[in-house]
Structure formats: C-alpha cells, structure tokens
C-alpha cells in the first residue's frame, strides 16, 4: 500500500493547476442579438393575422395541393433525368475532336443558357404557332403540334432541355478533372475511347459531378414553379387556383412555400450524404456530420463536465 501511494503524490503535484480554456464573450453577445432578432421575427409571424394560419392549416393537406406536389416531384425527376442524360452527351460532344460536333454542343449550351427558362417555356408552349405540324422532315410523318404540345410536354421540354445545358457544363468540369494520364494508361492497354470514357473517366468524374448535381436537383424542384405560367397543375399552380377562388392569397402562398421547404430540406439531407459517400476516395478522414458536430458541442460545453474540470 505504501508503495502505491508514493507515486500518486508526485502525480498530484503536477496536477495542481487545472487548465481553463479561453472565454469568448463576443460569441455569447452575438448569439444573444441573433436570438433576440429571431424572436422578434417569430412574434410578428405568429401574431400578424394576415398570415391566416388557420387557413394554412385548412389547405396544407388539401387534395389538390397534394396532387400538385406529386406533379412537382414528377416534373423534377423527369426533367433532371433528361438533363443528366443529354448533359453527358453534350459534355462529351464539347470535348470531341470534331470541331463541328464541338461547335454544335457549344451553340446548344449558349442558346439555352443565354435565354431565360421562362421564355423557353413560353416558346415550347406556343410551338404550334411556330410549327403547326411537326414532320421532322420525314415524308409520311405529320403530327399536330397542338395535340402533342400539352402544358406538361412543354414543361418537360422546357425545363429538361434547359437543364441539359447546365448539366453539360457540370459533367464537362468533371471529365476535365480526371487527369489525362488515366486516358493514356487506358489507351496504352488497348482500351478504346468509348470504353475508356465509360469505365475509367466517368466513374472518377462522379466525385466532381455529384455535388453540383444535387444543387441542380434542388434548383429544379423550385424551377418547376415557373411552369405555373403555362398552367401545369404543379404545387404553385394548385395553390393559385385555390386563392383565385377564395382570395386567400397569402395563406395559400404560405402553404406552397412550406411544402417547397419540406421537400427541398429532404433533398438537402440526401444530397449531403450522397456527397459524403462520393468524397470517400478523395480524403483520408471525412469531416464530422452536423449531428456529430452537435454531439461534440454538447460534450465539450456540458456544464457538469466543466464543473468537473474546475475542481
């Protein structure tokens, strides 16, 4: 026993002074100001009767609103799919050896990026005025543009083709991020260009392509609100139809906004984890997720733990 206590004594001599971390009063003050402003905002939102919260509650799960969300999601998925597939094709065209192919892709991208998507939507919607019958230049083919171009097809064409222009730039950046030595090594092994693109270059480009594509998907979800101008019954248009009848404009816009926030939040969380997944190859250790950061914050600032440290 006596042998045990002796080294303990020397240890406590070193332990005599406890370490106190630096205080940050500025952080507490700025946090207090922000919380105060937040409370002010919350109070006005809750007490202003013009928000019509009871009306919001009444319509939030209205059948036509829910159906509108369905159309919005459907449009988002279809238009993103068109955008990604066509975007990859355009990106490959942009880096082709053939200058005509390259220019064609460049012209496509500049046209669709250079005009507002709202204008494009109106163009597609009024295509029948431009080409009353669609023949594709093939004898025997004669389609009535008015019958083909419904509001929905105009919306899909408008948003999808516009999205392809942006996706092609994202995919191109991804392809260019893969160093040339990869294609060279594949070429030296006798792997042809198409296989090299599909098996070697694109899988590596994904790490660069995925994060902005997630952004684009969220942007697309919100951009679908634009097609309300060509009377596609998506979320915003469904809300508009109701307030045109009841004049409860603000509450119904709140309904639509709340739903947009809910869906984009779900997409954001998904995007965050997809990004983390594709970052795996590139970094040795991943940064903590917000949840992990929160747990760490609580652990570090735990008053009980602080007390223990002071003792």
């Amino acid at each position: 026993m006596t042998i045990m206590t002796e080294p303990k004594k020397t240890a406590s001599a070193v332990d005599e002074y406890s370490i106190v971390n630096a205080r940050h009063p500025g952080r507490w003050i700025s946090a207090a100001v922000i919380v105060f402003l937040g409370l002010l905002l919350l109070r006005s939102v809750v007490t202003n009767p013009n928000f019509g919260w009871s009306t919001v509650g009444m319509y939030i799960r209205d059948v036509s609103i829910v159906r509108g969300i369905g159309v919005t999601l459907q449009l988002t998925v279809i238009c993103m799919a068109i955008g990604i597939v066509l975007g990859v094709v355009l990106a490959v065209m942009r880096i082709a050896a053939n200058p005509v192919v390259r220019s064609a892709a460049y012209a496509y991208v500049s046209f669709f990026r250079g005009t507002p998507v709202l204008v494009q939507l109106l163009f597609w919607y009024n295509l029948a005025a431009l080409y009353p019958s669609i023949t594709f230049g093939i004898p025997g083919v004669d389609l009535d543009a008015n019958a083909i171009i419904t509001p929905m097809t105009a919306a899909i064409l408008g948003l999808g083709l516009n999205q392809a222009a942006y996706m092609s730039e994202i995919v191109r950046a991804g392809i260019l991020s893969v160093e040339n030595g990869q294609s060279e090594a594949a070429g030296a092994l006798g792997i042809n260009r198409l296989q090299t693109m599909r098996r070697i270059v694109l899988p590596q480009a994904m790490r660069v392509i995925i994060p902005p594509t997630g952004n684009e998907a969220i942007g697309m979800l919100k951009a679908t609100a634009l097609v309300s101008v060509i009377s596609v019954p998506e979320l915003l248009y469904s809300a508009q139809i109701i307030y045109a009848r009841t004049f409860e404009t603000i509450p119904l816009l709140m309904v639509a906004s709340l739903w947009y926030i809910v869906v984009t939040s779900i997409l954001s969380v998904g995007q965050y984890y997809v990004e983390r997944h594709y970052a795996k190859g590139g970094q040795r250790s991943l940064p903590a997720t917000p949840w992990q950061q929160l747990k760490r914050f609580v652990r570090v600032h735990d008053p009980l733990a602080l007390k223990g440290a002071k003792k």
Binding site: A188, L189, I200, Q204
Partner: peptide, 16 residues
C-alpha cells in the same frame, strides 16, 4: 497496343 505494355512515371493506376 495489346502487344505493347507501357509503364508510366506516375503509375496512372485507376484509383476507383
């Protein structure tokens, strides 16, 4: 090129 193997300065292995 199938007949000709090549080894590069920077290895150029496929990292994925």
């Amino acid at each position: 090129r199938v007949e000709i193997g090549m080894v590069f300065q920077h290895f150029n292995l496929f990292p994925h």
